[in-house]
Design a protein around this nucleic acid. Structure first.
Lengths: 335, 335
DNA sequence: TTGTAAGCGTTATCAC
DNA sequence: GTGATAACGCTTACAA
């Protein structure tokens, strides 16, 4: 099991106690001895067993971070931000992905508990989760956590997420003033929290203009990816319904929609406008420069870590919700 | 520090020993008692402290995985594959990213050692690393590891990587037969192993056709991204040098090159052909459908884990090198 | 300034 | 089939 404190202590002719003090650079050890011990430890490639250390210190310095998926640039950017921020606070990030699978999500939560993380940041799955009760295991083990991006209704915990409601209100108002009247939304599972918010925003905002947004206008994809979006958009175009604007869940779905529209010999944005969430693809590399709603990842991360810290210190259990502003970036898929 | 074995044992009125046996589903415990203990443990949200467990069992079930960066789809796909594969083998993945920073890389290696990972898979940084000696700490602690993607010359360890040499030979031959004679390569740090191999392939293959590939034809980017690639390509176009084909390090650089070429009112592939490594972007979303050299990520992962396993079992120390075939995917940037 | 010993939460080896 | 007890590698009083 690798080299251990005793090896260093023996090599230096001191006790494990002093070796430990020296290696952790604590006072109460002769400066010279300390330097010597540290040099030997270094030379011998000694790094304290984190398991033993965690046990003895009753803390691990670990924060668990859970995201649905790491092959989506939005999440990988988020994760990188989190890690950077945590590093500054001297925490070590343990990353877990769920692949949008409930069993994996549960497994990862359980792993966090096993590892005795001191806190967790959880991006919920983006498909329906009928019973996220396993998150309560965190509470039972006194591990504070925050939701980021969305949350599970059934679980009481703070949440930091983008202000989806006003993002959409803004986007719709923008589109309305460029003349759009027939709106569609194309995205994932209707019943998850974030999409409920989006639907509400669409319904209520359009109502203000005496337009209706019904379930028929929400095109629900089995999975939020290029492939399914392409099919759904084809279906819509084939139906010959009137459409002025399509709001999309992310960049990939937006480009799928764009491609279908072009295939039907219509022009974007002349005939149909598109706005999507997330600004993850360099506009220069895309088939079209997307008008999009950019989420403020920095803020999302900063706020959630701050709240987590607060919970870790105070042991406070209040479940506040923080909304982070988004930004509409106008490019070439809107007028 | 969360709920512990003793809590369960007390709640069930048994000793910690029996509780442990029951929870780990080991024989030697009355079936009913076992079921009862397991049920209670579950209900109380008990998950064994991995630190204590690791200490007691003298193994952690952890494999460390190190990649330069997680915001590049190539790596995130790789990581996901590795995790899936390791899961099947009942290992848990610990992911670390270096952001191409030597200090981070060292820090992460040290963390792997602290965690007492049972093995590590290391994708070296893609910039020069004058002194990767810290990898020897792994050896000192008896932790076997394999390189994936590339390797550090100074460190003796097995490596699984794409057959860059024949990839380029193929690509060049393909381009040659479509009439290209003036070749350029645009990519990262010249001196790292993978790029040395590429340069060698370019030089030697072109020599067979009596063409020269000198250092002038290797456009070295400070960082391999869209921005720097764009600048380098502009420089090249501005110089008015003759160029028939540009080979690129990845999809982003290739699209940068494409955009510059178009900006100079030249046609791809009529005037200039482009081939790049990596097939990470859906062709449907790109400004142009790229002809590219696809790496076989599945094979890369499978082979490296197999070799790692072998090393973990045999304690064998031979440093074989495995080359994985690539595939030329012809799309629209070549004739 | 240094060494000794108890304790962290498990598992494993024994007796019973 | 079950319950003590020693070990795992470290930190930290406390004693010397």
């Amino acid at each position: 099991m690798g080299i251990k404190l005793k090896d260093i202590a023996d090599a230096c002719g001191v006790s494990e106690g002093t070796a430990s003090l020296a290696i952790n650079n604590r006072p109460g050890v002769n400066e010279e001895t300390k330097e010597y011990i540290r040099r030997i430890a270094r030379k011998m490639g000694y790094f304290p067993n984190a398991n033993a250390k965690g046990l003895a210190e009753r803390k691990t310095g670990l924060i668990g971070v859970l995201v649905p998926n790491i092959e989506n640039l939005f999440y990988s950017k988020l994760v990188r931000n989190v890690e950077e921020y945590l590093r500054k606070l001297n925490y070590k990030m343990i990353l877990a992905t769920t692949n949008n699978d409930i069993n994996y999500e549960q497994e990862m939560i359980e792993r966090f508990i096993s590892f005795r993380v001191e806190g967790a940041i959880i991006y919920p799955m983006i498909k329906e989760n009928p019973n996220p009760d396993y998150l309560k295991f965190l509470d039972m083990n006194d591990i504070p956590f925050v939701f980021i991006g969305s949350y599970y209704n059934e679980i009481k915990a703070p949440c930091v997420m983008s202000d989806l409601y006003s993002s959409l209100t803004n986007a719709i108002e923008y589109l309305y003033h460029t003349g759009c009247r027939k709106f569609y939304y194309l995205g994932g599972c209707k019943s998850i929290v974030s999409n409920r918010i989006k639907r509400k925003a669409l319904r209520e905002t359009l109502q203000k203009y005496n337009l209706v947004f019904s379930d028929r206008h929400y095109l629900e994809l089995r999975k939020t990816n290029y492939h399914y979006a392409f099919k759904a958009a084809e279906q819509l175009m084939k139906s010959k319904k009137e459409v002025d604007a399509i709001l999309c869940a992310d960049a990939y779905t937006a480009i799928a929609v764009y491609n279908v529209i072009r295939q039907y010999n219509l022009e974007v944005p002349t005939d149909i406008s598109i706005i999507n969430f997330d600004n993850i693809l360099l506009p220069e590399i895309c088939a079209v420069k997307l008008t999009c709603i950019e989420q403020n990842v920095d803020q999302l991360v900063e706020q959630s870590i701050k709240i987590l810290q607060k919970r870790m210190e105070n042991n406070s259990t209040n479940s506040e919700q923080i909304l982070v502003e988004t930004k509409l970036i106008v490019r070439e898929t809107t007028k």
